[in-house]
Design a protein around this nucleic acid. Sequence first.
RNA 1: GCGCGGGUGGCGGAAUCGGUAGACGCACCGGACUUAAAAUCCGGUACCUUCGGGUGUACGGGUUCGAGUCCCGUCCCGCGCACCA
Length: 878
Amino acid sequence: MDPLYRPEIIEPLVQQHWEAKAAFRAVEDPTRPKYYCLSMFPYPSGKLHMGHVRNYTIGDVLARYYRMRGYNVLQPMGWDAFGLPAENAAIHNGVPPAKWTYDNIAYMKGQLKRLGFAIDWSREVTTCRPEYYKWNQWLFLRMLERGLAYQKTGTVNWDPVDQTVLANEQVIDGRGWRTGALVEKRDIPMYYLAITRYAEELLADLDKLTGWPERVKTMQANWIGKSYGVEIHFPLTPPGAKANPSEGWGPVLKVFTTRADTLFGVTYLAVAPEHPLALQAAASNPALAAFLEECRKGGVTEAQLATQEKRGMDTGLKAWHPFTQEPLPIWVANYVLMGYGEGAVMAVPAHDERDYAFAQKYGLPIRPVIRPAGDGEAGGKGQRPDIPTLPYTEPGILFDSGDFSGRRSEDAIEKIALVLKSLGLGDRRTTWRLRDWAISRQRYWGCPIPLIHCDHCGVVPVPDEQLPVLLPEDCVPDGSGNPLARRPDFVNCSCPKCGRPARRETDTMDTFVDSSWYYLRYCCPDNEQAMVDARADYWMPVDQYIGGIEHAILHLLYSRFWSKVMRDLGLIKYDEPFTRLLTQGMVLNHVFSRRTAQGGIVYFAPDEVEVVTDDKGRIVAATARADGQPVDYQGIGTMSKSKKNGVDPQALIDRYGADTARLFTMFAAPPELTLEWSDSAVEGAHRFLKRLWKTVYDHVQGGVVSAYREGELPPRLRDLRRQLHQTLQKVTDDIERRQQFNTAIAAVMELTNHLARLEGDDACTRSVRQEALELIVLMLAPIVPHICHVLYQELKPGACLTDASWPEVDLAALQRDELELVLQINGKLRGKIKVAADAGREAIEQAALMSPEVARFLEGRPAKKVIVVPGRLVNVVG
RNA sequence: GCGCGGGUGGCGGAAUCGGUAGACGCACCGGACUUAAAAUCCGGUACCUUCGGGUGUACGGGUUCGAGUCCCGUCCCGCGCACCA
């Protein structure tokens, strides 16, 4: 055995061993419990970053742990390979996105292998391969047949930098999620997936996801945004003008409200600038038309986003109140959203912040109709109460509201809805914030939408037998529009219906489509005949999914939707794809910057600066190595290219090895929290591995050990065995139930420190040391598998760690004859007492009362009370 | 604004069901080894102290024999959503 720990030598050897044995090949086996451990697949951007290392190490620890526990483990990996960065790289370097992508995949795959992840590479899935995206197209056609996919021309979010349409989810604060460019509105024909049809189920089934963080479920629930309310129709013709009541109410203006109880406080109606009524009124009103035009452009300007000033204009139109018959002015208001509810609201300035601000600005009447429920609740109809400060937005008791006065808000909403329904002027209604998912992208590097445009037959689906619609891989985009549209060999085709010349759809699918079902394809990546097969029934659902919190809404919601669609198509048998979800925190590092003379900011990589620390080790100043001039220390921030504070995992692996990289990322913080990069903490992790190596080396040098007999162990060795098995118990619980790998590692470090201090090389000691080292190596095996593989071989010649099981706790070793209890007097720690392990409550009380501490602190006063917490402490109250 | 997390030494963090606050690691200090340094090993490290002890988990109250943990209020930080009617 090498006396020195040399990861650069042992790690490649161990990896070759795994490869030769096909150690991590997953084969369906109905006789064994399965464990599908999935990490979110990477976008092949070029090289791994620390976030990947963290993500995949967490997954690998769990996969290896469950493998040792006897589960049939599937841990696959693949590539989210379509997407814009490939096109941008092509624009810069003149290389086709396909080549750039495949080169990146090859390099990053090498990096993943170098980190020693227990991945079944035979199931690798790459979304830009026809054998994968064929099934995107196939399922899209199934959805089209069922009306779950449909075309609609609508106002869409247009990213002027990427020249593409964005989904609502991809617009953040009015800007493109990737480019940060201000999003414009455009009218374009688009394909949508009807995710809203599943809104109810997507919301309700969140309750089934007991293995998901509450935070993620809350975010999804908010995103789906179910809202119970009432739809109210305001007639657009005066009630008296109807010649014949049987004709109904004629045209109405529909609004949605959650506060129907405030109906008698309505003083005007407001519609969105895109509302048909607004457009109609604008036709004969140039000033209004100008205002609408301003809203269309202004809705996304920076200034307006910042001030969010409420603006509006009277249309001159009137609607009539369904109960009071009173005429109400209809305004256009920029704070009303066309995309939500009916694109129109009933405005109640007295009880709504926005309506209040608007009414104040434009001098519209403000009419209170709700008062606090408070003490005067029995107060009787019509009684005029003290009105609190307006707007009063809480529910309360109605007044000045006709027959409804005196009712509570909740009650009034029900009654008003009933009466409206009987009048044919409204009903209860549920509204959702969730929109249908727009999947068309005017980009080249994505999955082609399998449709053909024929002048005679219209939009015709590509027949199944012609799938996949192949994406040409030799295009080099130049940044303007979609290069597919300029490829006659792609565009020109014949209509599948009439055979006449036709044009292929050149839009491609949102890449979130690709990632909505990749986990299914890992189950059967080689099936050319079907999207999924029976193997998916064996592996699915995913038992443990690990990925970044940034996917809490988009990817996870789309995947849940996709699963439900596939279930309804009879393709799969489960409702929810991911049973347990772990969202790992981000990786952070120090940020250094300097203001330039022009007022800009330049960033410095942490290794480009020299820091000055105070006597406590805090950074107080920093200078750039290049010019010796000071730079500003900005504290800790997420690793990013722009801040130049990313750490290249490759450098870490080259210097310390994969095991150190893995140990550091798992030890420095619990997986859900942010992880702060620290060079010295990395060294600390490396030091521990060197110590472990040396401890095993020293022990192995002593030669073969004989097994001890339980009875012959002296107390100090029994104590060590107790700690050993207590540690095993804790580590098992930390990994399996708590998923707190940092405390598991801390416990093993503590044990290893104790073991290093264990003196003696008699047969008994060596025998217990052998047991302890074997267990330590097994406990660390999921985290640092390379070093453990070698150490295990040294400890047990002929044995192979790949076949080893997770050790069992020896309950007998946990037994003890004597316990040490904490002695408290009046709740304060005063000492410790030793009692027999089987001592009863009375014996413990006696022992406590007889202790010198009690005599000293109670000074002869009698104890009023003695509280005994078995196995922990005794508190004497005097 | 609404919703969800948080606030513990110099730092990352531990304390799992209301029961020894600060595990483990980093940093720092001291010692050993060395001609010297690095590496390694050993010891110390919340604060105050009259060395008996006292005080400490953002702040102010409360419940309890006992509170970092539970309850009420305040402040601060992070994340998500954001004119959603």
